[in-house]
Design a protein around this nucleic acid. Structure first.
Lengths: 225, 225, 225, 225
DNA sequence: GATGAATGAGTATTCATTCAT
DNA sequence: GATGAATGAATACTCATTCAT
């Protein structure tokens, strides 16, 4: 087993202490600039901020995509954690709404994470994998809210990421003028999501099923760069 | 008055036949790639697709911005026209909803047009002017729908472009898998927008006033993604 | 004898009236912009100002060089005329000084003409020919001034164009701040040029002879563009 | 303190051996072409001659201006050094004349350096600073020569750069035919500059004061030839 | 292991010149 | 004869990625 294989598949030995420190520095610097300025920031800039040479980045990460992937896998895992915690709230509707809010909150102002979710150009398999991880959790939140009669019956699990995407777009758009504006539209959405009241419109188009959502995310790969 | 004369303010005579053909080829090629892949596509690529030299593009258009401008001014004017027609519908609510639907429909799948509306980076005066032109029209549609008691009282004119932005984001996202999915969320939104029914939530954050919307659009100028 | 030959060698028939008018317009426009902004101005710009198509310029002039050549041949002829008139002044020294002053005056502020004299890049044979035409006249002015005992004995005819070049350089340099400054250095030069007084230094390096001056002018051809 | 450290203000460690070698190659290639052909030579051409990729130039120098700056700062500093040394010569007149000669000698045949002094277009702060640095030194040389009664009373400090400009123009002009011809005109000038003798002409136009000289240099910024 | 030097294709834009209309 | 449309090589500068030190 060569050193390369360790890197690209599963590492068996832990990194040397200094190597690990550099890896963390890189991740921290990348997190900072990608969050603030988006994924177009050059790796030279990331290296500069991390206080390492750009070669060091390439030693730890095969390419820019892998760095992005690694970086955001954690954040996507964090989304799953939020979903889990929301699922433990006693009231199903509160759980769903809380999760929605927290997710958008995470994306609002995280330019890089939004780009990653919108444009699968960056990041690859592991992102896809991480995205999988919370899909069932979201499904559960939605199902519970529907079962309790609080969410409208035609709400689907895949609606949630779409709604988050939409709200975070509004957030980014108003980032410098009214960063909280997305809450206005979250409330609007929630009014639309809650159980049928007289006059509620049919949603018309069926939601995507999980597999479609998956492939939709992938199809953005051909864009950009 | 021909279409050509409208576009170039100083030109008095129509272009020569071959020049006009090339101009149309350029516009067609640009429309295609900007619509499909966004405004980052290079002019070399546009020229290649149009089957002309890049210099030919620069003969007809001062720079990339002007090409973009020329290409999209019509589409933005079309939005104003849609708003006007919607305002003439007998039912105010139908007018508002119809306009929303048409606007999103125009943006769905037009990557370039969305970028142009989101990022003032591209395009210049005429685009900016065109953007202005429909703001009051939208205001009227909203006001009428509220006056008729059909739209919720706290809906604001600037909510409309935000909603369109959000829906078109969903549309773009699902462009290759379910291009019509935005209609689902349009219906959801409409349910949220209609007049208060028992249990309606306050929107919490106030909407942007027109001037804020204006400056918000401008603040994206430095981005370019 | 083809039409081409007429153009490139000696035209036998006069131009049609309208063609001649266009030719004059082109020359006038070119004179204006080359004088004001130098020879880098594009032919499109010249054509625009002349109110003709750029193709018309190429119909009358083989290329940019020929236009420049034609344009400045006249001005160089004008220098010869000035030399002739100066030669008719009763006092030889006054004649020489007057000529110097007029020549510099012509060049000061004529950016194009200076470029042409400094950088033989532009313009070709006919310029060279025109330059020839006044060399003997200048020689005579210098000789007379020396013969009268007013100019220093080691002053040479080829010193004059060098002095003019130098003074016009000063003129161009101070064009926007003190356009007349060259007169200051003209006076300084004249003090240096006048007949030996006690303490006059030998000039050390011999002046160029006429043929050297000729080839010097040509050697600038390899520069620029 | 190495030469390298002087040049790049932030760099603490010397460049790697290979990098330094390339840097020197770039500087050598640039020096050669800028000196011979002027500052319009493209960086692609410089890179080609240096045997490196154009990116390598941009790794060492932020842009073309910085390369030019780096290249010519030393030469401009050398002028100040020459002025200083000339000021230490016992005879004031000899000091002034020596300085004049050395300065022109430096510029003669260095097309790039002349452009840099004539057109503030190229180079930036450090060049501008360097230009400043020798103005007072020149002033002193002139003042001493006047005080000693050797230079004419109406000679001004700003006359010196003008004279240098003029002489170096002559030098450049005769570069390939008689590169030393400028010495002839230097001697002529010196005869004009020395203290009034019977019949000396008034200079007529007042010299520029230091501030005017300054702004004159700046006004060439928009040219670029 | 770490560094940062080197690469070169890619971007928007200009202009002398040719040639179809 | 006149027009102006078309061309494309050239310019300064960027950045993901590779590889010598």
């Amino acid at each position: 087993m060569t050193d390369r294989e360790e890197i690209s598949t599963v590492r068996v030995r832990p990194l040397r202490r200094d190597a690990e420190r550099n890896r963390q520095r890189i991740l921290a610097a990348a997190a900072e600039v990608f969050t603030e300025h988006g994924l177009e920031v050059s790796l030279d800039e990331v290296a500069r901020r991390a206080g390492v040479g750009v070669g060091t980045i390439y030693r730890r990460f095969a390419d820019k995509d892998e760095l992005v992937e690694t970086l955001f896998t954690d954040r996507i895992d964090e989304i799953a954690a939020m979903a889990r915690r929301a699922g433990e709230l006693p009231d199903p509707w509160t759980g769903l709404v809380t999760f929605l809010e927290q997710w958008v909150c995470l994306l609002a102002g995280d330019v890089g994470l939004r780009q990653l979710l919108m444009f699968a150009t960056y990041g690859r398999d592991r992102i896809s994998y991480a995205r999988h991880s919370f899909a069932p959790l979201v499904g559960e939140l939605v199902d519970r809210a529907k079962a309790s009669g609080q969410a409208r019956a035609d709400l689907a699990p895949t609606d949630i990421p779409f709604i988050v995407l939409m709200l975070s777009t509004a957030a980014e758009y108003a980032h410098y003028s009214r960063p909280e504006i997305w809450r206005r539209y979250l409330n609007l959405m929630i009014d639309g999501m809650c159980a049928s009241r007289p006059g509620t419109r049919a949603l018309g188009v069926p939601a995507l099923v999980a597999e479609e959502m998956e492939s939709t995310m992938r199809q953005h790969s051909s864009r950009r760069r």
